[in-house]
Design a protein around this nucleic acid. Sequence first.
DNA 1: TTCATACTTCGACCGTAACCGAAGCATCTT
DNA 2: AAGATGCTTCGGTTACGGTCGAAGTATGAA
Lengths: 227, 227
Amino acid sequence: MKEGPDIARIGMLFGDPARANMLTALMGGQALTATELAQAAGVTVQTASSHLSKLEDGGILAQRKQGRHRYFTLADAAAGTLLENIMGFAASRGHLRHRPGPKDPALRKARVCYDHLAGDYGVRMLDSFVARGAIESDGENLTMTEDGRAELGTLGIDVASLTSNRRPLCKSCLDWSERRSHLAGTLGKALLAHFLENGWARRSEESRAVLFTPDGERKFLSLFPAG
Amino acid sequence: MKEGPDIARIGMLFGDPARANMLTALMGGQALTATELAQAAGVTVQTASSHLSKLEDGGILAQRKQGRHRYFTLADAAAGTLLENIMGFAASRGHLRHRPGPKDPALRKARVCYDHLAGDYGVRMLDSFVARGAIESDGENLTMTEDGRAELGTLGIDVASLTSNRRPLCKSCLDWSERRSHLAGTLGKALLAHFLENGWARRSEESRAVLFTPDGERKFLSLFPAG
DNA sequence: TTCATACTTCGACCGTAACCGAAGCATCTT
DNA sequence: AAGATGCTTCGGTTACGGTCGAAGTATGAA
């Protein structure tokens, strides 16, 4: 009865709408200030401050002082992963706050999910990898093949350097707008970084949307043809 | 702001101590009646009934009427997996309700985690598989090797029949008492079933503990030698 | 039919926590 | 030094949800 981990503590932290909004905003992957998070949650800064300290005590958020600002981020990849899991579960039960998927078509098309690509383009990328045998999919687990390693090498992505024992290379993440899986893990992160660094796309200022340039979009679509 | 899955709804459901206790009790994998769950949570049946209907509406629990009883179970494997994830996260942040791990040594040694083996023995089993190359571990993802398939075949476990596209064959699950991973997925389930069916062990009546017989324990330990 | 068991619904109580205004610190600017 | 900005702490209000007793429904037993 009184054994084990304190599920309720974690659940409660995720269980308040204001906190959930803040965490969703932080899924964008970038550090945000207390004021920005207050706005994202639709509450005053006082209220936000109280929420943020609770989330920090709970080990979900980390803060970094910089001048007179305090930047908050998800504490680590595990926190992001858990958040993804909860989002996926909620979506799978049809618990959507607004209606099916993002209203904004740009968000539906391509957006950031913590540190990797989600939305139509994210799902398409993983499908394409699987279709050509670069990644093998076993229901939920994803495994990189030798072919895949070689292909990514020609793109300038060194798969070996992405291998870590703290975080998987390939991981599937349920996309709540597409209701299918997209690619997470260190490879998902590296690929998104690759697109941004090479000017194929840039991040929207206001939202989690990823905006492709015409040229970048052309390259992306030819690299990941639809199944 | 109003986009996406309703995290808060799910969080709230997990965020009440009474509900968390009920869900923890259901991690034992067997169906329980409303009265049993009320007792597990330490509340009256009225209160329990209210909680149970909320959990059912949220898609976390399923109920099955049988005579004048109502048996509740976790809705599906996804619900169990999410629960495991939250437990693992809570444990990783040190949010334990009582103290480090289960007080009961039997629970610490071997217990049921939804439908597979957890605790010292669960961790030991996975370690042993990995050490001898039956399963390959890539940080978080687990993959079965050809050697592993052959070995399990000699045990009388047909790996091919366990392959599903709804649930992975091998999956790592963070063990909150050992703070290491044990084996989940359809294989984890099949192995536990194998131990129980062949009389190596039986389930405790009162708790989630798995009690090995002297003979079963001997077989288990020789099959999965410590690393 | 009558009684017992298993569970749900109703109604009322109560505690907690979410919320905001105001005041208090800390840091940067001028 | 004085003002502005970013954030936290304090105090008080309010609302929501967890709780249980009592009554109501359904199934099974006598």
